[in-house]
Amino acid sequence: MKYWKYLICAVLLIVAVSLPKFIGVYPLQMANIILIYMALALSWDMLLRTGQLSFGIAGFFGLGGYATMLTSTYFGFNPLLSLMAAAITAGLVAALVGYSVLRLRALYFAIVTLALGEIFRVIAQNLEITGGTEGMLLKQTMFKGDAASTYWVMLAIGVLTIIISIIFQKTRIHYASTSIRNDEIVAASSGVNIFKYLVIIFAVTSAIQGLVGGAYVQLYGFVEPTATTFSINFVLMPITMALLGGLYTTWGPVIGAVLLSVIAESLKLRIPYGHLLVYGIIMVVGILWFPGGIMGFIKKMFKISNQ
């Protein structure tokens, strides 16, 4: 059973890496979108495993995007360096802000993270160096927009996120997260330094979101504060994907992101304007009938077949 898992992962990875050989530019663009949402959904889930519900995905995504744009424009960072700047900026800001915000819990934490995103947006919208409401254009996107190379960068980010998620699930971080989520008093009484773990996990997941935001800017070559870079889509879509795929797992958000992105895109072509309706119905049905998400359903099936 164990070797099967590794084999499947290896095959999937080889297929994913060699994808540009077999498919055209449009499907590759599609794959980039999937990878963006996947990394966002997964990083959101990684924080949720500690019981903290964040609506700040778009905030850190946008922050990373602007970090990439500014470092490339004003300091002439090369694309990969600017992506690193995005991750570090988002991670550092999250650690600093988290120092006070992570004393809040539940709805209060959720609302404050939403407000954080708004604060970043308002700042970006009003500063001259960030281009105000008009935003900015990148002089040159990474690899001059070469489809295969940009896809590989996105794939690397996706795989990195999955690896971090697996590390979180296999090490003591898993035990810290679960105990904090289940019962903070028991966790603290068992010696868990709750605040320390929350700050670390919040910083890491925000860094991933910043990195993805940076990559988004390198892909499309612009930042624009109101409708794009801080769009509420980057909050709602990843959360829906993680819910549909199955929370507290690595593969749930991955499956959810692939499924919902593909469905959304194909519906958009078939029934323009009507696709959101169908999309909503899928969400409602999925959440009503598969409360554990797709991963929960698969695990249940395995259990039944084992008995």
């Binding site: 003591r172 035990y175 810290a176 679960t178 105990s179 989520r181 289940n182 019962d183 008093i185 028991v186 966790a187 068992s190 010696g191 868990v192 330094n193 507290y248």
Partner: peptide
Amino acid sequence: RPLIGLNMIQNIMVGAMF
């Protein structure tokens, strides 16, 4: 107050680890 997300030995491991 068991930690329901973990099984029996994992509950105990939380104490040993942290």
